[in-house]
Each structure stands twice: as structure tokens, then as C-alpha cells.
Amino acid sequence: MTLQQWCFSYRGRLSRRDFWIWQGVWLVAMVMLFTLAGNNWLDTQMAAFCVVCLLWPASAVMVKRLHDRNKKGWWALLVILAWMLLAGNWTMFNGTWQWALGRFVPTLIFVMMLLDLGVFTGTAGENRFGSEARPVNYFGKPNYQ
């Protein structure tokens, strides 16, 4: 798999190793963006634009990892639901419901998705989304196999 397929294609399957490499790249990028924006070295709108630009590769990696687990990419929408629940204003409910809808359910979704994508192995052999996951060729060297 090429670097472009890794970041921008929703087809195929992705191994746990390459999923965790993306998570590391994403985390470093977020820390850098928020540090630069927090110190006023980067405009907040530019940092937000960069975060939005990273949504496509993040979703592509997540969908390919779901494919490796033999699940449809639509399961990735659970992450959007969790973010929406986290950002929601739940003051109309009493304390327990505020905590449940605003903190517990999103945390549960994030933990379950992280376990499913990052810990559990993919389907052995071919599944409905293609052949077994191949490693990403990060440096563009020809792969003579």
C-alpha cells in the first residue's frame, strides 16, 4: 500500500501496526497545532483548518482498519456520535443524565472503538473487503515480492 492509499483511500484493509502509526502521527500533529495556536504563533483559524484537513486521512485509516476487522466503514460514524455527545449541552437533564450522556456514553464509544481497531486482530486471509492487509510503503521504495 502506498502512502497516498494509506491516507486518502477508503478501499482495502489496514493492519494494527499501520493504524497505530497513524494514531501517533495524528497525536503529534494535534499537539503541535494546539501548542502553536496556544502560544499565538499560529492563527486559531489556521489551526482549525489544519484539523479539518486531517479528518479525511483519519477517517480513511479508520475505515480501512474496520475493513480489516470485517466491518463496514459506517461503524466509524460512532466516533462522530461520541464527539457530538461530548460537545452537547445536557443542562436540561439532572446530574446523572448529564454525566451519562455527556461523559460516560462518549467515553464508552471511544474506548470500545480503540479496543476494536487497535487491539483486536484483523480477519485472517481474505474477507469481503479484499485480501489480507499489506504493510504501508512509507518511503516509496519498490516492493519486489
Results as ranks from 00 to 15, higher is better:
L85T: 02
V25N: 04
F110K: 00
Y138N: 08
G95L: 15
L85I: 01
V136R: 05
V63M: 02
G24L: 03
A100E: 09
V61C: 00
V28R: 12
R65Q: 01
W74D: 11
M113R: 01
V111W: 09
W90S: 02
F120N: 02
K72Y: 06
N94P: 13
M113I: 07
V119Y: 09
S59M: 11
G102Q: 06
A60S: 01
Q23Y: 04
N127H: 13
G24S: 05
W90F: 10
F19V: 06
N89R: 12
K71V: 12
S9V: 08
V28I: 15
D68Q: 03
A48I: 01
F104H: 12
R128G: 07
Y138G: 05
L14T: 00
M62T: 06
W41G: 07
V51W: 01
R13M: 09
L27R: 02
L66N: 05
N39P: 07
N127M: 04
F110N: 03
Q98R: 14
M84S: 09
F120Y: 12
C53I: 08
K72L: 01
F104Y: 08
V28Q: 12
M112I: 08
R17I: 04
G38F: 06
W26H: 10
I80D: 01
T123K: 03
W56V: 05
Y10G: 04
R13G: 10
G88N: 00
N94R: 09
A60F: 02
M112L: 15
T2S: 14
G38R: 11
L66M: 01
T107M: 14
P57H: 00
E132L: 12
L42A: 04
L77T: 14
T2Y: 10
W6C: 09
L117M: 09
D43V: 06
T35V: 12
D43M: 07
N143D: 15
